[in-house]
Amino acid sequence: MFEARLTQGKIFKQLIEALKDLVQDANIDCSEDELSIQAMDSSHVSLVQVNLQAGGFDHFRCDRTISLGFNSTNMSKILKCAGNDDVITLKAEDTADALTLMFESPGQDRIADFELKLMDIDAEPLGIPDTEYQCTIRMPSGEFQRIIRDLQVLGDTCVISCTKEGVRFSVSGDLGTGNVLLRNNAAEKEEDQVIIEMEEPVELTFALRYLNFFTKATSLGGSVILSMSPEVPVVVEYPIEEFGHIKYYLAPKIDDDA
């Protein structure tokens, strides 16, 4: 038996919105102390990883580990039926072939429940080692979204380079070129700050298409954290306050070794 009740149902809505364009099918993996999702896009270029701690739910019960395979587009359709202020409850029996989603309005005067058919997903979860990154950049999530949107006008590939000077996003295409440089900025409000921590300079190239998919998570939190090391995937993390995170990994474009 799995049951999870979330007063801020909006968070779950936003989470599914944040991954539905990137991945088609995924498993929700529930254990005693957390709910997690790991999935790759169909080209196996990026990976999304969601963690929600049991403590962040109003009520969380999971008797045994269970994987709930869902189609993200269908899940999103059902979640569209939930209001932003609704309380969302997820329920599934251990051997269930459907996930029950219950939406309660804040005044408890409207209760809707939906069932989403589940499926078996042939997923090969990847083991992601905990590593130290050479550069971590914390910035307002809205700023990141804007940079990606702006650069997409000019091209489809973006170079992110982190140096002493700051972090630079560059693009070049048929129209011309573009650069956005962000410097350390100790603004008063924590959310407006840009904080760059760097051991060694790093420069990596990425497909903007995927970075753009990642910014669908912007509404989940005020800040985003980029972590980079040479020749490994970048991590784009949106922390969800006192609850967990959604992390995106994107494999870089690498000079042809062949």
Partner: peptide, 22 residues
């Protein structure tokens, strides 16, 4: 396949057997 019914999952899945967390 997508949209098809989930087969009753046999209960062999021991705790922590799926998706080990690192």
């Amino acid at each position: 396949t997508v949209g098809s019914k989930r087969k009753a999952n046999d209960t062999k899945g021991k705790k922590g057997a799926f998706f080990k967390k690192r």
